[in-house]
Design a protein around this nucleic acid. Structure first.
Length: 415
RNA sequence: GCGGUCGUGGCGAAGGGGUUAACGCAUCGGACUGUGACUCCGACAUGCGCGGGUUCAAAUCCCGUCGAUCGCCCCA
């Protein structure tokens, strides 16, 4: 083979794209019901946007970005996530000047240069929503409820949501101090990964698989929340409860992007995709808009991994109606008939029928099989004898009954 | 970026130094001079991811490389 697709990418072929289209249809419909409108931003942005937006210290920025220089020597990066670009577009196009909260959604490819594994690709797709311009806890709850509703709409089972508050800046700093005070004394007894994590993202240490049980007495971030943070978190929960949304609080939930404040959450799947059990996540980012150069506007959003959804749907054998039966398959026998079939084929297609013919010069039997494979409702057969009489045979593939009609009556015989 | 496993026709899959590279599915042709089932017959890999090496001889052994897959870090 001369060429192979780049590592960690996927070809979506007929047979699977239908399943993607199904999920995308559900996404669009749900967005409409929740009044989120689509935005399409560039697939690459200036590298600096992600360095600032996503955060200089994150793994994404430090080692996972597909970056390149354009011909003018500008540093560009294929977007590793959707929020930074949407927020940039919000600021650049001054959507903050609009009267209502900006409720936006996007579906598209994201790029991260990681080693692929189950449910993780270098080019992957996210469906995400962003609500910019409101600090109301009700919108936090709406975003969380949106995600769960989406899973329900596409027929996915066994999903749940974990929520947490990472606090406002003051709360987080206070907590970091307390946590480090707890962790530092035991530093030498921890695994190598954890020793690294203490410096980079101390909260992560608590999730360590090796040293997990050493942290039973670790301080919880919830005890470090100041009044503003706590009030917000409680209000989010009240709103979720009001909607009948079940959630669990996970005080150790952290997200890998720097821009989160207050609310953070992750969507989980019971069955798991290999070692992965997260199918989406999000949170509030009250500093990001300003960070990107806009006014001091708060925001919240979430994103769902489409590949992971597809893996789970396949795993759960979710019924997806992706059949596309053909209205009619036209068979010509002989050259003269073939010319007439070409004419009829196009006329039927113009009238709105889905129609197909043989282009491989195959025998009648093979063409019948082809019609069968395509699930044609009717097969139409034209031979020289019919042609001479100005007639054509119409066979119902379901009843196997065949009638002969005038050529000009073909379309009406197919209803 | 690091580690495990694996790359044989369109698909599934046997073969682990000398075979004509099994078999199954699908496809195409025929038995049935113009009809989708079944059955039977026939065709279908000058080549075993790619590149080197060892050998009289390599799909089979060795090295490299590229992919796939699973896991780690991290994440969707």
């Amino acid at each position: 083979m001369d060429f192979q697709k780049p590592k960690g990418t996927l070809d979506f072929l007929p047979g699977t794209v239908e399943k993607w289209q199904y999920v995308e249809r559900k996404a669009h419909d749900l967005a409409r019901r929740f009044n989120y409108r689509e935005v399409r931003t560039p697939i690459f942005e200036y590298t600096q946007l992600f360095q600032r937006g996503v955060g200089e210290t994150t793994d994404i920025v430090q080692k996972e970005m597909f970056s390149f220089q354009d011909m003018g020597g500008r540093n560009m990066t294929l977007r590793p996530e959707g929020t930074a670009g949407v927020v940039r577009a919000y600021v650049e196009n001054k959507l903050f000047g609009e009267p209502d909260v900006s409720k936006l959604f996007y579906i598209g490819p994201m790029f991260r240069q990681e080693r692929p594994q189950a449910g993780r690709y270098r080019q992957f797709h996210q469906f995400g929503i962003e609500a910019i311009g409101s600090v109301e806890p009700a919108i936090d709850a709406e975003v969380i409820a949106f995600g769960l509703q989406f899973f329900e709409d596409i027929g996915l089972k066994g999903t749940s949501v974990e929520i947490n508050s990472v606090g406002n800046t003051a709360s987080r700093e206070a907590y970091n101090e307390r946590l480090l005070a707890f962790l530092n004394p035991m530093r030498d007894s921890l695994c190598k990964d954890c020793q690294n994590r203490i410096d980079r993202n101390p909260l992560r240490v608590l999730d360590c698989k090796v040293d997990h049980d050493k942290f039973a007495d670790a301080p919880s971030i919830l005890d470090s929340l100041d009044e503003e943070s706590l009030t917000h978190f409680e209000a989010v929960q009240r709103n979720l409860t009001a909607m009948g949304v079940a959630y669990t609080i996970n005080p150790r939930l952290v997200r890998g992007l720097d821009y989160y404040t207050l609310t953070a959450f992750e969507f989980k799947t019971q069955s798991g995709i290999g070692a992965i059990d997260t199918i989406g996540g999000g949170g509030r980012y009250n500093k990001l808009v300003a960070e990107v150069g806009g006014p001091d506007q708060p925001g919240i959003g979430m994103a769902i991994g489409m590949e992971r959804l597809q893996l789970l749907l396949a795993d759960q054998q979710t019924e997806i109606d992706d059949k596309r039966p053909l209205d009619v398959y036209l068979i010509a026998l002989g050259e003269k008939a073939s010319a007439e079939i070409t004419k009829q084929l196009h006329a039927l297609r113009k009238l709105g029928f889905s129609a197909e013919r043989d282009y491989l010069d195959r025998k009648m039997k093979a063409q019948m099989k082809s019609a069968d494979r395509l699930e044609a409702r009717y097969t139409v057969i034209l031979g020289d004898d019919e042609l001479e009489r100005g007639e054509i045979a119409v066979k119902s593939m379901e009843t196997r009954e065949q009638v002969t009609v005038k050529l000009e009556d073909l379309a009406s015989a197919l209803k």
